[in-house]
């Protein structure tokens, strides 16, 4: 018989060092993102209420929690939580991605059919990379860098937004990113439920899969309404 030279039994089992622990990390940070994008999307929809409402909302975010917290205090707490979550989420994703490639073995199947898995589930990794790139660009555009490619003012959130979405390729980047976000959430919500151990029956599985679809459509659709609003002239300066 051909034995495997490395056939050994593990002595010390630390559950916190397992692949499942990494998945738990992804699921928890993923849920943080979901909470955030839902709130962010709701905020963006203020654009339909006009220039002043939108800017007041942006300002309101900065004064939230005052005087208990300093100006912009809560915003900074959120930023730190999000950045740490993103770092952990991407770290776990990359680690598991590389592990999966090794685990699959050196030789590919000549013929391989995928029978069950959804389009979204196969897009998670590259879709995630797209999201990461988008997040960097998005922060440069609206938060850190405040780039106004039309050359207009950058100190007025509403006007910066309308200016940006009046540029066709910025709108396109944004809509593609929202599609990626939608697919990531479509599989991600259900996957998080499964990873956290909430889907222990066929019924619960269906509920979480449906929830994934609903969250994906609401979030990606909600975010997309704003650039589409600018495109159609419903939102204007």
């Amino acid at each position: 018989m051909v034995g495997v030279a490395t056939a050994t039994l593990v002595k010390n089992s630390r559950s916190t060092r397992s692949t499942i622990a990494l998945k738990l990390l992804m699921a928890v940070t993923g849920l943080v993102f979901i909470g955030y994008v839902l709130a962010h999307m709701y905020g963006n929809l203020k654009a339909f209420a006009g220039h002043d409402s939108f800017n007041e909302y942006a300002e309101h975010l900065r004064t939230l929690g005052e005087p208990l917290l300093p100006y912009s205090g809560l915003l900074w707490v959120i930023r730190v939580v999000l950045l740490v979550s993103l770092a952990l989420h991407v770290y776990a994703a990359v680690t598991l991605w590389r592990r999966a490639q090794t685990a699959r073995g050196g030789t590919k199947y000549v013929v391989k059919k995928n029978k069950h898995s959804s389009f979204s589930s196969h897009l998670m990794r590259w879709g995630g990379v797209t999201l990461l790139l988008f997040i960097v660009w998005h922060l440069l555009n609206f938060t850190v860098g405040k780039v106004n490619v039309t050359g207009g003012a950058t100190n007025d959130p509403f006007n910066l937004m309308v200016d940006s979405f009046s540029v066709w390729w910025l709108t396109l980047i944004y809509l593609v990113a929202m599609f990626m976000l939608g697919t990531h959430l479509h599989h991600g919500v259900w996957s998080a439920g499964q990873t956290l151990g909430f889907t222990n029956s066929a019924r619960q599985r269906l509920v979480w899969k449906r929830a994934g679809l609903v969250v994906a459509v609401v979030v990606a659709g909600g975010f997309s309404l704003v650039p589409l609003g600018v495109l159609t002239g419903v939102i204007s300066k």
Partner: peptide, 23 residues
């Protein structure tokens, strides 16, 4: 704890809940 540790030690990958296994 032990079975998962052995699973990882053998070089199997992590699950992404895509469901090819069950089909």
């Amino acid at each position: 704890a032990s079975m998962v540790a052995q699973h990882d030690h053998e070089g199997f990958g992590g699950c992404t809940n895509i469901g090819e296994c069950t089909s």
